[in-house]
Write a protein that binds this DNA or RNA. Sequence first.
DNA 1: TGCCCTACCCACCAAAAGGTAACTATTAGA
DNA 2: TCTAATAGTTACCTTTTGGTGGGTAGGGCA
Lengths: 120, 120
Amino acid sequence: MPTKTYHIGVEATMEIIGGKWKSIILCHLRHQTMRTGELARAIPQISQKMLTQQLRELEAANIVARHVYKQVPPKVEYALTDYGESLSGILHELCVWGEDNIDRREAAGEEITLLSRDDV
Amino acid sequence: MPTKTYHIGVEATMEIIGGKWKSIILCHLRHQTMRTGELARAIPQISQKMLTQQLRELEAANIVARHVYKQVPPKVEYALTDYGESLSGILHELCVWGEDNIDRREAAGEEITLLSRDDV
DNA sequence: TGCCCTACCCACCAAAAGGTAACTATTAGA
DNA sequence: TCTAATAGTTACCTTTTGGTGGGTAGGGCA
Protein backbone atom coordinates (compact mmCIF):
# COMPACT_ATOMS: atom_id res chain seq x y z
CA MET A 1 0.00 0.00 0.00
CA PRO A 2 1.37 3.42 -0.94
CA THR A 3 2.24 5.60 2.03
CA LYS A 4 -0.34 8.28 2.69
CA THR A 5 1.33 11.66 2.83
CA TYR A 6 0.16 14.83 4.51
CA HIS A 7 1.89 18.15 4.20
CA ILE A 8 0.32 19.81 7.22
CA GLY A 9 -1.67 18.59 10.19
CA VAL A 10 -4.89 20.36 9.29
CA GLU A 11 -5.18 18.18 6.18
CA ALA A 12 -5.73 15.11 8.31
CA THR A 13 -8.22 16.87 10.56
CA MET A 14 -10.28 18.10 7.65
CA GLU A 15 -10.31 14.66 6.11
CA ILE A 16 -12.10 13.53 9.26
CA ILE A 17 -14.43 16.39 10.15
CA GLY A 18 -14.68 17.99 6.69
CA GLY A 19 -17.52 17.72 4.24
CA LYS A 20 -21.04 19.01 4.53
CA TRP A 21 -22.27 16.82 7.37
CA LYS A 22 -19.61 15.41 9.67
CA SER A 23 -19.01 18.48 11.77
CA ILE A 24 -22.76 18.99 12.17
CA ILE A 25 -23.29 15.43 13.30
CA LEU A 26 -20.41 15.71 15.73
CA CYS A 27 -21.70 18.97 17.16
CA HIS A 28 -24.91 17.18 18.07
CA LEU A 29 -23.23 14.11 19.51
CA ARG A 30 -21.03 16.38 21.56
CA HIS A 31 -23.89 16.95 23.97
CA GLN A 32 -25.48 13.52 24.12
CA THR A 33 -25.68 10.01 22.81
CA MET A 34 -28.32 9.87 20.09
CA ARG A 35 -30.30 7.34 18.14
CA THR A 36 -30.31 7.36 14.34
CA GLY A 37 -33.78 8.83 14.19
CA GLU A 38 -32.96 11.51 16.72
CA LEU A 39 -30.00 12.61 14.66
CA ALA A 40 -32.14 12.65 11.53
CA ARG A 41 -34.67 14.88 13.28
CA ALA A 42 -31.97 17.13 14.68
CA ILE A 43 -30.54 17.59 11.17
CA PRO A 44 -33.67 17.76 9.02
CA GLN A 45 -31.82 18.60 5.80
CA ILE A 46 -29.77 15.41 5.79
CA SER A 47 -30.84 12.32 3.84
CA GLN A 48 -30.91 8.83 5.31
CA LYS A 49 -28.14 7.79 3.02
CA MET A 50 -25.79 10.61 3.96
CA LEU A 51 -26.50 10.17 7.64
CA THR A 52 -25.51 6.52 7.74
CA GLN A 53 -22.64 7.00 5.33
CA GLN A 54 -21.09 9.77 7.39
CA LEU A 55 -21.64 7.88 10.62
CA ARG A 56 -19.85 4.86 9.14
CA GLU A 57 -16.88 7.01 8.22
CA LEU A 58 -16.74 8.60 11.65
CA GLU A 59 -16.91 5.15 13.15
CA ALA A 60 -14.05 3.95 10.96
CA ALA A 61 -11.99 6.91 12.17
CA ASN A 62 -12.76 5.92 15.76
CA ILE A 63 -14.54 9.21 16.43
CA VAL A 64 -17.98 7.78 17.12
CA ALA A 65 -19.09 4.47 18.56
CA ARG A 66 -22.12 2.61 17.33
CA HIS A 67 -24.14 0.61 19.78
CA VAL A 68 -26.75 -1.79 18.45
CA TYR A 69 -29.46 -3.05 20.80
CA LYS A 70 -30.74 -6.49 19.93
CA GLN A 71 -34.35 -5.46 19.56
CA VAL A 72 -37.10 -5.32 17.05
CA PRO A 73 -37.69 -2.75 15.75
CA PRO A 74 -33.97 -1.94 15.72
CA LYS A 75 -32.40 0.54 18.10
CA VAL A 76 -28.98 1.95 17.35
CA GLU A 77 -27.21 4.60 19.36
CA TYR A 78 -24.26 6.76 18.41
CA ALA A 79 -21.89 8.46 20.81
CA LEU A 80 -18.50 10.12 20.70
CA THR A 81 -15.67 7.81 21.63
CA ASP A 82 -13.10 9.00 24.16
CA TYR A 83 -10.95 9.96 21.23
CA GLY A 84 -13.87 11.73 19.62
CA GLU A 85 -14.25 13.74 22.81
CA SER A 86 -10.83 15.22 22.11
CA LEU A 87 -12.53 17.15 19.30
CA SER A 88 -15.14 18.60 21.59
CA GLY A 89 -13.34 21.87 22.29
CA ILE A 90 -12.65 22.46 18.62
CA LEU A 91 -16.24 21.68 17.66
CA HIS A 92 -17.51 24.13 20.21
CA GLU A 93 -15.24 26.85 18.91
CA LEU A 94 -16.31 26.15 15.35
CA CYS A 95 -19.92 26.59 16.42
CA VAL A 96 -19.28 29.78 18.30
CA TRP A 97 -17.18 31.31 15.54
CA GLY A 98 -19.92 30.53 13.05
CA GLU A 99 -22.54 32.13 15.25
CA ASP A 100 -20.47 35.27 15.45
CA ASN A 101 -19.93 35.18 11.70
CA ILE A 102 -23.67 35.02 11.15
CA ASP A 103 -24.22 37.90 13.57
CA ARG A 104 -21.73 40.02 11.67
CA ARG A 105 -23.25 39.26 8.31
CA GLU A 106 -26.68 40.05 9.64
CA ALA A 107 -25.41 43.31 11.11
CA ALA A 108 -23.99 44.07 7.66
CA GLY A 109 -27.47 43.80 6.19
CA GLU A 110 -27.40 40.27 4.84
CA GLU A 111 -30.64 38.28 4.94
CA ILE A 112 -29.56 35.45 7.15
CA THR A 113 -30.97 33.29 9.92
CA LEU A 114 -29.54 30.94 12.50
CA LEU A 115 -32.07 28.53 13.90
CA SER A 116 -30.34 27.40 17.05
CA ARG A 117 -27.30 28.37 19.01
CA ASP A 118 -24.82 26.13 20.72
CA ASP A 119 -25.87 26.47 24.29
CA VAL A 120 -23.52 25.07 26.91
CA MET B 1 -33.44 37.52 -2.12
CA PRO B 2 -34.27 34.37 -0.19
CA THR B 3 -33.06 34.39 3.39
CA LYS B 4 -30.05 32.16 3.94
CA THR B 5 -30.75 29.78 6.77
CA TYR B 6 -28.34 27.95 9.01
CA HIS B 7 -29.35 25.38 11.58
CA ILE B 8 -26.19 25.46 13.64
CA GLY B 9 -23.18 27.75 13.84
CA VAL B 10 -20.64 25.27 12.59
CA GLU B 11 -22.39 25.23 9.21
CA ALA B 12 -21.38 28.81 8.56
CA THR B 13 -17.82 28.20 9.71
CA MET B 14 -17.40 25.20 7.45
CA GLU B 15 -18.77 27.12 4.52
CA ILE B 16 -15.86 29.49 4.99
CA ILE B 17 -12.94 27.26 5.92
CA GLY B 18 -14.23 24.00 4.42
CA GLY B 19 -13.16 22.38 1.19
CA LYS B 20 -9.86 20.85 0.31
CA TRP B 21 -7.73 23.98 0.32
CA LYS B 22 -9.01 26.88 2.41
CA SER B 23 -7.87 25.67 5.80
CA ILE B 24 -4.44 24.82 4.41
CA ILE B 25 -4.05 28.24 2.87
CA LEU B 26 -5.15 29.90 6.10
CA CYS B 27 -2.75 27.83 8.18
CA HIS B 28 0.10 29.22 6.10
CA LEU B 29 -1.12 32.80 6.18
CA ARG B 30 -1.50 32.51 9.92
CA HIS B 31 2.24 32.90 10.33
CA GLN B 32 3.04 35.47 7.69
CA THR B 33 1.93 37.56 4.77
CA MET B 34 2.71 35.67 1.57
CA ARG B 35 2.94 36.28 -2.15
CA THR B 36 0.97 34.14 -4.59
CA GLY B 37 4.07 32.24 -5.68
CA GLU B 38 5.15 31.63 -2.10
CA LEU B 39 1.79 30.10 -1.30
CA ALA B 40 1.97 27.95 -4.40
CA ARG B 41 5.39 26.68 -3.34
CA ALA B 42 4.24 26.10 0.24
CA ILE B 43 1.30 24.03 -1.05
CA PRO B 44 2.85 22.15 -3.97
CA GLN B 45 -0.21 19.98 -4.62
CA ILE B 46 -2.51 22.94 -5.35
CA SER B 47 -3.18 24.15 -8.88
CA GLN B 48 -2.98 27.79 -9.96
CA LYS B 49 -6.69 27.81 -10.57
CA MET B 50 -7.63 26.48 -7.14
CA LEU B 51 -5.20 28.79 -5.39
CA THR B 52 -6.64 31.96 -6.87
CA GLN B 53 -10.20 30.72 -6.68
CA GLN B 54 -9.94 29.91 -2.99
CA LEU B 55 -8.13 33.15 -2.23
CA ARG B 56 -10.93 35.10 -3.96
CA GLU B 57 -13.52 33.36 -1.82
CA LEU B 58 -11.58 34.01 1.37
CA GLU B 59 -11.26 37.62 0.33
CA ALA B 60 -15.00 37.86 -0.28
CA ALA B 61 -15.58 36.51 3.23
CA ASN B 62 -13.26 39.18 4.60
CA ILE B 63 -10.84 36.58 5.95
CA VAL B 64 -7.86 37.52 3.81
CA ALA B 65 -6.77 40.80 2.32
CA ARG B 66 -5.19 41.09 -1.11
CA HIS B 67 -2.59 43.72 -1.71
CA VAL B 68 -1.51 44.44 -5.27
CA TYR B 69 1.74 46.29 -5.90
CA LYS B 70 1.76 48.30 -9.09
CA GLN B 71 4.79 46.60 -10.60
CA VAL B 72 5.84 44.51 -13.52
CA PRO B 73 6.14 41.63 -13.15
CA PRO B 74 3.14 41.68 -10.82
CA LYS B 75 3.48 41.35 -7.07
CA VAL B 76 0.46 40.42 -5.00
CA GLU B 77 0.47 39.74 -1.29
CA TYR B 78 -2.11 37.98 0.83
CA ALA B 79 -2.55 38.36 4.56
CA LEU B 80 -5.16 37.54 7.17
CA THR B 81 -7.46 40.44 7.94
CA ASP B 82 -8.09 41.33 11.57
CA TYR B 83 -11.24 39.29 11.33
CA GLY B 84 -9.31 36.43 9.76
CA GLU B 85 -6.99 36.53 12.76
CA SER B 86 -9.95 35.55 14.89
CA LEU B 87 -9.64 32.12 13.28
CA SER B 88 -6.01 31.77 14.22
CA GLY B 89 -6.56 29.83 17.43
CA ILE B 90 -8.93 27.41 15.77
CA LEU B 91 -6.58 26.87 12.84
CA HIS B 92 -3.77 26.11 15.21
CA GLU B 93 -5.85 23.57 17.08
CA LEU B 94 -6.93 21.94 13.83
CA CYS B 95 -3.28 21.56 12.89
CA VAL B 96 -2.26 20.15 16.24
CA TRP B 97 -5.18 17.72 16.40
CA GLY B 98 -4.33 16.48 12.93
CA GLU B 99 -0.71 15.96 13.89
CA ASP B 100 -1.79 13.89 16.84
CA ASN B 101 -4.21 11.96 14.66
CA ILE B 102 -1.39 11.11 12.27
CA ASP B 103 0.83 10.03 15.15
CA ARG B 104 -1.86 7.68 16.41
CA ARG B 105 -2.49 6.17 13.03
CA GLU B 106 1.21 5.66 12.54
CA ALA B 107 1.48 4.05 15.97
CA ALA B 108 -1.37 1.78 14.90
CA GLY B 109 0.70 0.56 12.00
CA GLU B 110 -0.68 2.69 9.19
CA GLU B 111 1.73 3.76 6.45
CA ILE B 112 1.49 7.49 6.86
CA THR B 113 3.74 10.53 6.72
CA LEU B 114 3.48 14.14 7.82
CA LEU B 115 5.92 16.41 6.05
CA SER B 116 5.92 19.40 8.36
CA ARG B 117 4.56 20.26 11.76
CA ASP B 118 2.96 23.45 12.91
CA ASP B 119 5.76 25.02 14.83
CA VAL B 120 4.91 28.02 16.97
C1' DT C 1 -52.79 -12.53 7.39
C1' DG C 2 -50.93 -8.26 6.80
C1' DC C 3 -49.13 -4.02 8.40
C1' DC C 4 -46.13 -1.17 11.53
C1' DC C 5 -41.72 0.09 13.32
C1' DT C 6 -36.65 1.32 12.79
C1' DA C 7 -32.35 1.22 10.72
C1' DC C 8 -30.15 0.91 6.56
C1' DC C 9 -28.85 -0.78 1.89
C1' DC C 10 -28.79 -0.24 -3.21
C1' DA C 11 -29.17 1.53 -8.00
C1' DC C 12 -29.36 5.43 -10.36
C1' DC C 13 -28.89 10.33 -11.33
C1' DA C 14 -27.47 15.41 -10.64
C1' DA C 15 -24.57 18.84 -8.98
C1' DA C 16 -20.42 20.56 -7.08
C1' DA C 17 -15.62 20.47 -6.56
C1' DG C 18 -11.38 20.00 -8.40
C1' DG C 19 -7.63 19.11 -12.15
C1' DT C 20 -5.16 20.16 -16.68
C1' DA C 21 -3.45 22.75 -20.12
C1' DA C 22 -3.25 26.56 -22.83
C1' DC C 23 -3.68 31.44 -22.91
C1' DT C 24 -3.35 36.65 -21.40
C1' DA C 25 -0.95 41.10 -19.84
C1' DT C 26 3.08 44.09 -19.07
C1' DT C 27 7.66 45.80 -18.81
C1' DA C 28 12.63 45.14 -17.95
C1' DG C 29 16.52 43.72 -20.03
C1' DA C 30 19.56 40.71 -23.23
C1' DT D 1 13.12 41.97 -31.33
C1' DC D 2 12.55 38.27 -28.13
C1' DT D 3 12.37 36.35 -23.65
C1' DA D 4 11.83 36.05 -18.68
C1' DA D 5 9.00 36.95 -14.76
C1' DT D 6 4.45 36.85 -12.10
C1' DA D 7 -0.40 36.54 -11.47
C1' DG D 8 -4.31 35.38 -13.40
C1' DT D 9 -8.11 33.58 -16.67
C1' DT D 10 -10.60 30.27 -19.51
C1' DA D 11 -12.42 26.05 -21.60
C1' DC D 12 -12.90 21.46 -20.95
C1' DC D 13 -12.87 17.28 -18.47
C1' DT D 14 -12.88 13.93 -14.32
C1' DT D 15 -13.88 12.86 -9.70
C1' DT D 16 -16.29 13.38 -5.69
C1' DT D 17 -20.24 14.37 -3.25
C1' DG D 18 -24.96 14.40 -2.47
C1' DG D 19 -30.02 13.37 -3.53
C1' DT D 20 -34.10 10.30 -4.69
C1' DG D 21 -36.81 6.54 -4.50
C1' DG D 22 -37.10 2.17 -4.00
C1' DG D 23 -36.34 -2.17 -1.19
C1' DT D 24 -34.96 -5.37 3.04
C1' DA D 25 -35.35 -7.53 7.85
C1' DG D 26 -38.12 -9.45 11.53
C1' DG D 27 -40.80 -9.37 15.75
C1' DG D 28 -45.21 -7.26 17.64
C1' DC D 29 -49.87 -6.80 17.18
C1' DA D 30 -54.71 -6.03 15.30
